[in-house]
Amino acid sequence: MFYPNSPQTSPQLTQIPYGQQYAMMQRQIQQPYHPFATTEPQARLYPYHYQGPIQQEQGGFITQQSTAASPQYVQMRVTPVDQSIMSGYPNQTANGSSSSSFNYNIHPQQQQQQQQQQQQLRHHAMPVGSVPLQDDRYRKQLIVNYLAPDVTSTDLHELFSRFGELDGARIIYDKQTNMSKGYGFVYFCHAEDAKEAVERMSGYEFHGKWLKVGYSTNPLNIVPSNSSPYVHAGSRGAAG
């Protein structure tokens, strides 16, 4: 039997160049792979992502010199942007860049009308829970959420009447099932009393439920100042 490094198959040491006398086997001759043993700084910083320098080929596509990437890492192929796409944008300079302001050559009167329309939209648009300043009635009506099913309009009136005089209180019921929808409205005579009720009743436990109280901004629920107070009856038909 002959071994790869046996004296019968191995040459004389004098015939082997210096430095390879003890590297006779194939696994010894093959050098191990060192990912950080390279002179390129990109490979030292990113050993798993770097795959060699990027070269520009004919046709405008950018390719990489090395083989496919590892399945664990996804390499994105980048193509140059066609400058003709950006030619339609206004205020574009000769080098292809555009300024931040756009001039669509709008007539001054049209621009003024658009600004007025935007101001009107901001004036009428009102986020949930906010209180408008032009109508004091919005500051007097509250919406009470997360009410228990057994709470009546009379219970709601008695709960909030300790903060001040009320114009009314009612629970909203479903017309088909005649069941409470879980929320109601309270109408105060003074805005200061309503503000105190919002601050003190939010998070209050009532009939096993934690109440959420806020201003009601729905104009359909506003009680006119010259109208008669609501009837605080315990029956659902009268309260709904």
Rank of each mutant, 00 (worst) to 15 (best):
Y187F: 00
K181N: 04
H34S: 05
Q26C: 07
T177I: 09
S227N: 12
S99A: 10
Q65I: 13
Q115I: 13
P4Y: 15
Q15C: 08
A148I: 01
V223Q: 08
S100D: 06
Y46I: 12
Y18K: 08
S202K: 04
L133D: 05
P7Q: 10
M25I: 15
F206Q: 01
Q92W: 13
Q111K: 03
S87Y: 10
V144R: 00
V223M: 05
R170A: 00
N91V: 12
E165F: 15
S153E: 03
Q8E: 09
P32L: 11
H49G: 14
K195Q: 11
Y50G: 08
N95L: 10
A69R: 08
P11E: 07
Q116T: 03
A239R: 12
S130V: 08
T67V: 11
D150L: 02
N105E: 05
G234P: 10
D167M: 02
Q120Y: 13
I29M: 11
A68K: 03
L147C: 14
V198G: 01
F188S: 00
S130Q: 13
D82W: 15
S98R: 11
I16K: 04
R170I: 00
N103T: 13
Y3E: 02
S70G: 13
S153I: 07
L159Q: 01
I29E: 15
Y3T: 05
L211N: 01
G214S: 07
L45H: 08
S227G: 11
H190K: 05
S227H: 08
Y138S: 11
P71F: 14
P71D: 06
Q28C: 10
G59Q: 11
K195R: 10
H124L: 11
H49I: 09
Q109T: 11
H157T: 06
E196K: 07
A68P: 09
G208H: 12
P35G: 11
S84W: 15
S6T: 11
Y18P: 06
S202H: 02
Q21W: 15
G208Q: 06
P90I: 14
D167E: 03
S225I: 04
D82M: 15
A125L: 11
L220M: 12
Q111T: 10
S227P: 14
Q141K: 01
V128A: 09
P127K: 07
A148T: 03
Q176W: 14
A233T: 06
Q56M: 15
P47I: 15
S99E: 10
V231E: 04
S216R: 00
P127A: 13
Q112W: 15
I143D: 00
K181P: 13
D82N: 12
P17T: 08
F2L: 07
Q118I: 13
T63V: 13
Y230A: 04
H207W: 01
Q114A: 11
P127Y: 11
K195S: 08
N178Y: 04
R77I: 15
L147E: 07
S101A: 10
V213L: 03
A239Y: 02
G88V: 11
Q58Y: 15
L133S: 07
M24Q: 03
Y22T: 11
T38L: 12
Y138C: 09
A125R: 05
L45W: 05
V231K: 07
Y48D: 05
D136W: 02
N218F: 00
Q109G: 13
R236A: 05
G60Y: 15
N91H: 10
G59N: 11
Q26N: 14
S235H: 02
D150Q: 04
P219W: 00
P108H: 08
F36H: 06
V128I: 10
T67C: 08
L133N: 13
T79C: 14
H123N: 06
P229L: 10
K181R: 13
Q134V: 08
S130G: 09
P71A: 05
G88E: 06
N103Q: 01
I29F: 15
Q8H: 12
H107N: 15
P53Q: 08
Q120P: 11
N5Y: 15
Q112D: 09
P219S: 00
G234F: 04
P224A: 09
Y22K: 07
D150V: 05
Q112P: 08
Q8G: 05
Q83Y: 13
I16E: 12
D82K: 03
Q111I: 13
A239N: 01
M201N: 01
Q21F: 15
H124R: 08
N95Y: 14
N226L: 06
L121E: 06
A197L: 01
S98M: 15
S100W: 14
L220W: 02
P90R: 10
N145W: 02
I106P: 06
P35W: 15
I62A: 02
R77P: 04
R44M: 15
N178S: 08
D174Q: 06
Q20T: 12
R200H: 12
E40M: 06
L166H: 06
G129P: 06
Y33A: 06
K181Q: 02
H232E: 06
M76Q: 07
T9L: 13
Q112C: 05
V128R: 08
E165M: 09
G60I: 15
Q58T: 14
Q110M: 12
A194D: 01
L147D: 01
L13M: 13
A194K: 00
N5V: 12
P224L: 03
F160M: 02
A68H: 15
P11T: 08
P127H: 15
Y173V: 07
Q141E: 01
S101I: 08
S225W: 13
Q176F: 13
Y146V: 00
S101W: 13
Q141M: 00
G203E: 02
V186G: 00
Y104S: 01
L13I: 07
Q114V: 10
Q65E: 03
D82H: 09
N91S: 07
A197Q: 03
A233P: 07
Q8A: 05
S130K: 04
F206W: 14
S99M: 07
P80I: 10
N226E: 02
A239K: 04
L156F: 03
L220G: 02
P17C: 02
I171G: 02
V144N: 03
P32M: 06
Q72N: 09
Y230M: 10
S84K: 04
N218V: 00
H124Q: 12
S98N: 04
D135F: 07
A148R: 06
P11M: 07
S101L: 13
T14W: 14
Y50S: 05
S216L: 00
P90T: 09
T39A: 13
Q134M: 10
K181A: 01
S10G: 12
F163I: 07
S10H: 09
L211E: 01
M201S: 01
C189Y: 03
Y230P: 07
A238L: 14
G240R: 11
P80Y: 14
V223G: 04
H107M: 13
M86S: 03
Q20L: 14
I85P: 07
Y89W: 12
F160N: 01
A148N: 11
T39P: 12
L156P: 14
P41G: 12
S216N: 00
Q134H: 11
K175F: 08
P127E: 03
S98E: 11
Q26R: 06
S180L: 03
P108S: 06
M86A: 08
A43C: 15
A238E: 03
P149A: 05
M24S: 04
P224M: 13
P80N: 12
G234V: 04
A43E: 06
N226Y: 04
E57Y: 15
G168K: 05
S10F: 13
T9E: 12
G129S: 08
Q64F: 15
I143Y: 00
R236G: 03
L156H: 07
P11H: 08
G19W: 15
L211H: 01
M76R: 05
G88K: 04
A43N: 03
L166Q: 05
F206E: 01
N178V: 05
Y3C: 05
Q30N: 07
S202T: 10
S227K: 03
R122V: 13
Y18L: 04
F2N: 05
F185I: 00
F36Q: 03
Y104L: 09
G59P: 08
Q117G: 07
Y215D: 00
P108C: 07
Q28W: 15
F2A: 01
I54L: 08
Q8T: 08
S6P: 10
D174P: 03
T152L: 09
Y215W: 01
G19R: 08
Q115V: 11
G184C: 08
Q112A: 12
A233S: 07
P41F: 10
S180P: 11
G59C: 15
T67H: 12
V186Y: 13
Q114T: 06
Q110K: 06
S87V: 14
L13C: 09
L156I: 13
L166I: 03
T152H: 03
R137Y: 02
S180K: 02
Q117F: 12
I171A: 02
A238R: 12
P53N: 11
